[in-house]
Design a protein around this nucleic acid. Structure first.
Lengths: 210, 210
DNA sequence: AACACTATTAGACCATAGTCTAGATTGATA
DNA sequence: TATCAATCTAGACTATGGTCTAATAGTGTT
């Protein structure tokens, strides 16, 4: 009897996916999460989840951070990325950072079930179009991902805004904290990423497409 | 009778290319340049050059800037990029920014000549491996390239160091000017690129892979 | 309960970044 | 030659960025 966790901020899509899965897996327990925090909380509570179906664009999880974070805390858990886009460089990065599969939302439900079967057997599955160009992620990028996974959620949010080119003042307003606190976070981010200026931090974020 | 300009900072390679071309083009005048400044100077002096063979990595020309700059001043001149690398995203960007051809240095001389023939007839030529993925460069990128082409060479150098994550002080040392001057250049760069902070300028540079 | 550990918060303080103004130099043009 | 325009240069000044110190609160450990 399989237990899946669906992490997607779109309630309608969670429902649809649930329906598609119910038809193909007779004995199935489903858990749901709608943002990165609740995903991590759910994984913490249920230690026997067989598969995580993870949306790339959830609150608190801009692009690759969610995957990096989950892989850091639960390296043995099979993860299938569910995504609206299917840009091949993103697909390659997801696999490179440890996802077992990449399932576009546009896929018919029968094929989604097939893909999940493959993944449950421990094999990788990506859309046909992307099977050729699965460039390996470089050692440096792996190392950077390692460092980024050490950021706290709040620090990650700050890095995200840094990457948008916002001033400290603007970041403070966005997060509802003072500028002094933003600066403290930024100093901590520098330490963890091993850089010494905001431009370098932004370049790290850019490189990992966070 | 054809007149080519070879722009490459490697004297040995210029010589080799010259030899290869002499065998295939009977009537041929060759000019040479070893950096971006001398390339622009040579084009300015000789207004009847039929083809520019442009190396991507020349002093003063980090990646795409050389091409963008030449295209700005001489939009009608056929340009063939000569490059050691053959990364497909770079190939696509070169064609997108107006080069008629992309010739890897690893190509045998007979094929180089063939490629140049094709280009002289006004058709694009890229290596077989790269012919499929010639993604069109987006309008926004075109617009950014337009803006970057308006930078003076010194301003471009400053942008380059910004992109490396250097402090103003370090840039000043590298260029042998005072920090005050660096700041003045940076302000000018912001104006021309339409941004208001160094992080945003760095993101522009990153996006164009300068 | 007492402990160590870490995230979050923020104030005070110094360093760096960025603007404004302005003189010097160069190149094109009348 | 005179002149205009653009670039490069840099000093003085203000805004923003970044460090250090320290208090608070939460977490897991002994």
């Amino acid at each position: 009897m399989a237990k899946f966790l669906i992490a997607d901020d779109h309630p309608l899509f969670r429902e649809a996916l649930q329906g598609a899965l119910a038809n193909h897996f007779s004995e199935l327990t489903l858990r749901e999460a709608e943002d990165l925090d609740s995903t991590l909380a759910a994984l913490n509570k249920d230690d026997d989840v067989d598969l995580l179906l993870l949306d790339l664009h959830m609150p608190g999880s801009g692009d690759l951070y969610g995957l990096i974070r989950v892989r850091e805390d639960y390296p043995l858990l099979p993860v299938a990325i569910i995504s609206g886009s299917e840009d091949s460089s993103i697909v390659a990065k997801c696999i490179g950072f440890g996802a077992l599969g990449f399932i576009p939302k546009s896929l018919p439900s029968a094929e989604i079930a097939e893909a999940i079967d493959t993944i449950l057997q421990g094999e990788t599955w990506v859309p046909k179009e992307n099977r050729e160009r699965l460039d390996v992620v470089s050692d440096e990028d792996q190392e950077l991902a390692q460092k980024v996974s050490g950021l706290t959620p709040q620090q990650y949010r700050v890095l995200h805004f840094l990457h948008e080119g916002l001033l400290n003042k603007q970041i403070a307003y966005q997060l509802g904290i003072t500028e002094a606190t933003v600066k403290a976070h930024i100093t901590a981010i520098f330490r963890k990423l091993g850089v010494y200026s905001r431009t370098q931090a932004v370049l790290v974020a850019e490189r990992l497409q966070l």
